[in-house]
Design a protein around this nucleic acid. Structure first.
Lengths: 222, 222
DNA sequence: ACCGTAAGCCTACGGTGTAGGATTTGTCCA
DNA sequence: TGGACAAATCCTACACCGTAGGCTTACGGT
């Protein structure tokens, strides 16, 4: 009979069984599978077949672990090479962000609500600025434009990932019917557009809003 | 000597000492004073000089309490009367939201990351739609425009309230200096605009981005 | 007078983050 | 070769959390 009780002390194998990378990666998949609240130090340790306290040799505490989750997700953003066409480049960068967000929908609220200080975030800022400066915007205008686009992207992605899952298509189910019923008397414009509100192609909405911003920015281009 | 130990049973006064309103209001001030994580059922009960379990006579559980916090904040949005001038009306509505967000900065991430199903949120949707329809947008265009503006407002306010507090003005302190140092070699555009990035007048950024969207929308106006 | 019900309190259970060790193992230098 | 040191694991324990279930008291209707 093997000793099923885990041994104490440093493991026999040459190297550490636990690494920061393994911990953070497992935390990310855990967020996606069970939601953010399900990621507890104890639960994470259980997944890794490890004592909860062992995690603390690689991670400061739970809060910084969440920081490292956001960094990992941001590191997954595959920034494109600028082509020199202003509109295309802004779209490409924003879509790169969107792909990362869709790949990790449950992580996204975490990423978007934390201050982006990681090197990945700085790289994004850098490339957006390069596109804006290339397009002829002076430094102050470029910063304003950067912030406007960033705000839209953050808001749009946040709403996309926290919307009811795969809320696109043919389900005119209870939710929509309830809206129609409740607002039939009080909110005329809302009921008028209820059919349009019921469906939402997130990709289309994303490019639509982005196009609005880009159009206005191109009007300001020197 | 008065009996310092709290008495059991229903209180002697004619009415209940605890109400849902009192609980939610105290929870909101607690969020603002100590952050969201500090709002625990036990801590809230301590504030109200009450047993933790008494709260459950007025609130289902902690999660729905958070829902009620967002509803209270949303109820504080003072929607303006539309004037008929498209640009002014959109600005006024967005600013009404912004005022509520600034009034409750620590509550704002909570509000913005939850699905807006309350009647206050529906009222906002209704008024924005009325402005868009009045401006001549057909129903489908109006919904797209609504979502674009909403995304921008959400993203902008989220970044505003989670930015370093009162980060505007004369402090070129460690944060900014570090950015300048770290990126001096690798990120040329970022360092170039570092002075502009250091300062941020949130109100100005908000109106700038909003103006971009409105400008583009007016181009599409029939 | 009675009794149901609302509103408060108490106890208890299982879960959480994490401080402070105890223990084992690899590394490195004398 | 041996002995000190550091790294990595596990164990124990504490304070706190949300909340299920029950107890006690007072009000309000009949």
């Amino acid at each position: 009979m093997a000793d099923s009780t885990p041994r104490r002390g440093r493991p026999s194998g040459g190297k550490a069984v636990l690494t920061r990378e393994r911990i953070v990666a497992e935390a990310v998949t855990m967020v996606e599978e069970a939601g953010l609240d399900a990621v507890t130090m104890r639960g994470l340790a259980r997944r890794l077949n490890v004592d909860p306290m062992s995690l603390y040799h690689h991670v400061d505490n739970r809060d910084t672990l969440l920081d490292e989750i956001t960094e990992l997700v941001l590191a997954g953003v595959e920034l494109p090479h600028p082509t020199g066409v202003f509109r295309d480049d802004v779209h490409a960068i924003a879509q790169a962000f969107r792909r990362a967000a869709v790949r990790h929908p449950h992580c996204t609220p975490l990423v978007l609500t934390r201050q982006l200080g990681s090197s990945s975030a700085l790289a994004t800022t850098e490339i957006v600025l390069s596109v804006l400066r290339e397009a002829g915007f002076p430094p102050d205008r470029a910063v304003h434009a950067l912030r406007a686009v960033l705000a839209f992207v953050v808001g749009a992605l946040l709403r996309e990932v926290s919307a009811s899952p795969t809320f696109s298509g043919d389900n005119l189910s209870g939710v929509q019917r309830r809206v129609a019923e409740l607002s039939a008397s009080e909110l005329p414009h809302l009921t008028e557009v209820a059919p349009q509100l019921a469906v939402c192609d997130h990709e289309e909405e994303f490019t639509f809003g982005l196009d609005l911003l880009i159009t206005a920015l191109e009007l300001q281009r020197p």
